[in-house]
Design a protein around this nucleic acid. Structure first.
Lengths: 239, 239
DNA sequence: CTGACATATATTGTATACAGTGTGTCATTA
DNA sequence: TAATGACACACTGTATACAATATATGTCAG
């Protein structure tokens, strides 16, 4: 505690997001401030402030005198969220087509040419968000709100529910082709086309994903998105 | 302090939003926590939590050891924000066309038929947000995220910058007709058409507004959106 | 007079303590 | 077994203390 290295609140936010990603926090499960604070090794003050931020981003829900809980999305919630993603990314693709810099375009091309089969091709790479296809486009839009809404709020929310590019794995070839088409439209600075293609791409992924999800749920017994991937429950500390 | 009537943090958030609306807080002006706390008559703890929430909604900006400030948008920022609004409301119109209930449709029709020339026709009526045309459609979308992003985050942000339906006043007839067309499309459950019309409507308003704004700025001396309407600086208390 | 450096002050960041309040649980009782 | 009440627990609100930092101020050398 000698040198000041950024606001503790932000580190707590990061730690909580990491904990969500790693499955250390379970959706719907109540947790007390004090327990969480001692787990993270911080005091209540900064923790509460961090929770308020995440609450505003709809990652946590609070009920007074009761506790904090990670939001638990239904399939319908996720579907609606993906609809929002669809139009926002459509707008991002349009803006990118209009505003992308040569440097960003080069990176985008390189990425979509060769990078697509690497792990980083995942839409929401855990620690390298700047390399995802969709992140690149959001950034290239040069629209501050679009980028923040997508990269910070929306992707964070999706990540909280283990929504990764699971659809990508199941239709990798189509997705790759769609990515290519989108990049081409952006390179041609054709905003209309870029938006249409991006929306179609997202729509395909959404429909595919929801269908698979519903089938999974019907075949098993859970309604939550929780058990899609792995989970554990180790606590972690910041710094 | 005897009876518990809701979380203080939420009341502070409301109070701050009200202060923003009333021009009691000026964009860009730094203010200290302690001063704000004593003005509001609360302690630093809840105030900080409230600030964190508003920070997540991008209404406030903080710099460590320096202070809180209401964000100060440039014209470009506002233009980009209106682009986001455009696609989100387009999606809302589409969803509304697909999901609207008969009751909501009736209200929407009644509103667009007769209510449009009343004060409540303002897109962001200060105290009756549920009656605005765009609010009605956002609600009718039955999409939780869409409604919250629009009504809570985006409209709140626009309101902070005194962006009201100033464009509406300057093209009331066109806007009224556009509203009518949109309602008609929704009534016919034509999602495609509803989205196209809503986007066009917003686009018209945006272009008109930005043009006027730039002309205003060129003719005067301010770059901030602040002086568009009135302002004062009376402090206020919650409860 | 100007610039760099050191100190002072104000403000923020964090931790802890305590009183008040609501909720859920559990035992008691009809 | 179901309803009622008491209790424990968790959370809320607030205050205070101290540490860390940035800005402002002032001093001194050139």
């Amino acid at each position: 505690m000698s040198a000041y290295d950024g606001e503790l609140v932000d580190k707590i936010v990061d730690a909580l997001e990491g904990a969500i990603r790693n499955g250390e926090l379970l959706p719907g499960k109540r947790i007390s401030e004090l327990a969480l604070a001692s787990t993270l090794g911080v005091s209540r003050g900064p923790l509460r402030e961090a929770i308020r931020k995440l609450e505003a981003r709809r990652l946590f829900e609070r009920t007074a005198f009761h506790g904090i809980r990670l939001v638990d999305l239904s399939i319908e919630d996720l579907e609606q969220l993906l609809i929002v993603r669809e139009v926002l990314e459509g707008a991002a693709a349009r803006a990118a087509a209009e505003n992308i810099s040569d440097k960003d375009l080069k990176e985008l091309k390189r990425f979509s040419d060769e990078g697509v089969r690497r792990k980083q091709a995942l839409t929401f790479a855990p620690k390298t968000p700047q390399y995802g296809f969709h992140h690149l486009i959001a950034r290239a839009s040069k629209n501050r709100w679009l980028e923040e809404m997508l990269c910070k709020d929306l992707y964070g929310l999706l990540r909280a529910y283990r929504y990764s590019s699971i659809d990508f794995a199941h239709r990798a070839k189509e997705a790759r082709e769609e990515h290519h088409e989108i990049v081409k439209a952006i390179a041609q600075h054709d905003g209309d086309l870029a938006e249409v293609l991006m929306r179609k791409h997202n729509r395909n992924g959404r429909i595919n994903f929801i269908k698979r999800l519903k089938a999974d749920v019907a075949g098993e017994r859970e309604t939550s998105l929780r058990p899609i991937f792995r989970r554990n429950r180790v606590s972690r500390k910041p710094t």
